[in-house]
Design a binder for these strands. Structure first.
Lengths: 234, 234
DNA sequence: ACAAAAGTGTTGAGAGTACACCCATGC
DNA sequence: GCATGGGTGTACTCTCAACACTTTTGT
């Protein structure tokens, strides 16, 4: 808390933990839900993969720090991001006490893939369903992030945050199926998404060679963050 | 994150924020949802009320720190507690950078009221619906805690965590009504709670002078944390 | 004409909601 | 016997889930 700080509080009188902001960066590639990881160069856990993140600067909000890390690794700004959980077991980092405020971000495929980050670190996309060995407690963080993402999808229509600005209903359904890992009924999906009243037709159509061209939709900017009272996909 | 720490990392090379764990302690008193606050003795915000909390010790998990604060203020252990959110705006504490991991706890009325905390600080219970002026961003934290509590009540039956070990269905319904701030239908409430299959009759009855004695229920310990697929009170 | 993907309605089952009276006890 | 709170059932509506064919385009 902040209420028991002694009157003549001097920060240097206290041991203080390091605080980092880590970002679980989700994206869809083809038929796969992927997450961006960084290869560690130094011990501990050298050569293992880890969630991107970094220290929270003293004049920087937590969400700013997370957004900065996201931008550093991907060049992307203005995407969906929310605080996930704060992990603070005393020995999760063997060197020193590190408390990690974890975020997760949803990044459209076209905004990010094949664009290496600005810094020199080695990054790569991994399937959420086939993860490498991970540093620290990062596997736990990723699993928790996936749970939360699924939960969110079922209650609030955030799926389109992983798609380009304009998308077809089939693409949106596919995104949901990949993440939830189960097939959805086409007619029921469309009815439910459209009745949620958060999408609008752009008037354009997408033709990809074969088959009937599909109507393109976008997220309605004026859709006042509608609270879903029912699960979208129970 | 923890992955970008330089190889020869020395904690003293970095400015580090202070980290506190604060606990929003909810309880029911009569017809009111109350929260336990501490009166600050020193600036900033001297004589204003604040959420109890304190620094996270270097060898202490976040949840341990929160549980310790809870025990210090109330003497209570083993109650429902969950992480709420982490607040870290740079200037939320005017003295120095303080990041607060907020928790909320549900404490049964009979376990706590009229029992002053162990330490010398002045504490008092306040109605959640009639709060005093609060220090720091603590009003925001309380409002967020109430939102989460209501949300949880609607989806998962945590209401009984605010009641004694044995309670009547009317008492449970009353608790829900107080927190949700709306009347509930008696027959529908009972059907829904009982069909959730998390309660069992104790065999005992409560008689309070007038009226027919009510069956007492307790939480089924073997109720394997059943996932609710539907909202309890849509 | 046929292959490929888009698009479209109906029916049955289960859950949610609204609603009013009898029951057991104390005084 | 009456006041007080406990306890119970039913009908209607709405949402969910399951399910198959037609339409539009490219080749």
């Amino acid at each position: 808390m902040t209420s028991n700080i002694p009157p003549n509080y001097d920060p240097s009188n206290y041991d203080r933990p390091s605080v980092t902001a880590d970002v679980v960066i989700f994206s869809l590639a083809g038929e796969d839900l992927q997450v961006l990881l960084i290869k560690r160069k130094h011990p501990p856990f050298a050569n293992m993969w880890a969630i991107p993140g970094g220290f929270v600067q003293m004049d920087e909000a937590l969400e700013e720090a997370a957004a900065r890390e996201l931008a550093e690794e991907t060049g992307v700004t203005d995407v969906y991001m929310e605080q996930l959980f704060t992990f603070g077991e005393p020995n999760r980092d063997p060197r020193t006490r590190v408390i990690t405020v974890a975020y997760f971000a949803l990044v459209p495929y076209d905004a990010i893939h094949h664009r290496p980050g600005d810094d020199a670190s080695e990054t790569a996309w991994f399937s959420m369903f086939d993860l490498p060995e991970l540093a620290f407690d990062h596997r736990e963080i990723l699993e928790y992030a996936l749970t939360r993402l699924r939960y969110k999808l079922e209650y609030t229509a955030v799926g389109f945050q992983l798609l380009p600005d304009e998308f077809t209903l089939s693409e949106l359904q596919k995104a949901y199926e990949i993440i939830l890992h189960e097939p959805l009924d086409k007619r029921n999906f469309r009815r439910k998404i459209l009745s949620a009243n958060i999408l609008e037709e752009t008037g354009n159509k997408r033709k990809l060679g074969e088959g009937r061209p599909a109507k393109l939709y976008r997220y309605r900017e004026d859709a006042v963050a509608e609270v879903k009272t029912r699960r979208l996909f129970p």
